[in-house]
């Protein structure tokens, strides 16, 4: 354990082209690109499935099947198929991002369609009955009500992507996985453990940021996080005014 601490606190390990800062930056970068692409694909698709109820069976089974595909195998296969057609860093970067996107799509897609589906049928009926058009129902009612589930889908996708981005190192890219594999190659346990701790810490940090963001974006009417004074007042008033 001391060796791990020494490794982590050694200033020399933090700097340079293969330092912790650089590797962390790479790791965040790989993850962010994958999440952005996955979200851009899965959120609109999920909203559409949830709103129209169409292709639901397909969406459910697609997410299930994608989850069953092992990331490592897909990574190697896509490098061999795609890598030969691309040049330089792209030859490994594109397949890696592909794997991370495949990993991130199922939770985001499931969050989006389940989020829209669980919107109170009465609220949806009332929205239409008051004269909202299809897109207005989607953007003014269904989307805001689906935000808690969409964001929890995004958060679990982020966790998995950050954890799996370590595999980038297995195909010669950077990221925090480098410390794990480089350490493994020379049996440097301090470096491996240090790398593992860094990945877990990064995942937690990102989750923390995401949960803060979620609190800002999601209406307090949905989370029940309305302030205490209000609740106390309500208890007083329900008896008086119902």
């Amino acid at each position: 354990m001391n060796a791990v601490l020494t490794w982590l606190t050694d200033g020399a390990h933090w700097q340079g082209y293969d330092g912790i800062l650089q590797r962390t930056w790479e790791h965040v970068w790989y993850s962010a690109i994958a999440l952005a692409i996955a979200a851009a694909l899965a959120i609109p698709l999920g909203l559409w499935v949830g709103h129209t109820g169409r292709a639901r069976f397909l969406a459910v089974n697609l997410t299930g099947a994608l989850r069953a595909v092992p990331s490592l195998g897909l990574l190697f296969a896509s490098i061999m198929v795609l890598g030969s057609r691309l040049d330089g860093e792209l030859a490994t970067l594109v397949p890696t991002e592909l794997v991370l996107v495949v990993l991130a799509v199922p939770p985001i897609l499931a969050g989006a369609y389940a989020g829209v589906e669980q919107v109170d049928a009465a609220a949806r009926d009332a929205a239409r009955g008051m004269g909202m058009r299809g897109s207005e129902v989607l953007f003014k009612v269904e989307l805001p009500c689906a935000l808690p589930l969409i964001s929890s889908g995004l958060r679990s996708a982020a966790l998995q992507v950050v954890a799996t981005a370590t595999l980038a190192a297995a195909v010669g890219l950077g990221g925090l996985g480098r410390f794990l594999l480089d350490g493994l190659a020379v049996r440097d346990y301090a470096q491996m453990a240090g790398g593992a701790i860094l990945v877990a810490a990064l995942a937690l940090l990102i989750d923390l940021v995401a949960s803060t963001l979620q609190r800002v974006v999601v209406s307090p009417g949905l989370t029940g996080k309305t302030d205490r004074r209000d609740n106390a007042l309500r208890r007083l008033k329900t008896t008086a005014a119902s």
């Binding site: 954890a163 794990l180 491996m192 593992a196 990945v199 937690l204």
Partner: peptide
């Protein structure tokens, strides 16, 4: 739930320790 944030590769490597 926090345990899930540890990358699998890291966990496999740390187990012997």
């Amino acid at each position: 739930g926090l345990l899930y944030t540890i990358p699998s590769l890291a966990l496999f490597i740390l187990m012997p320790l």
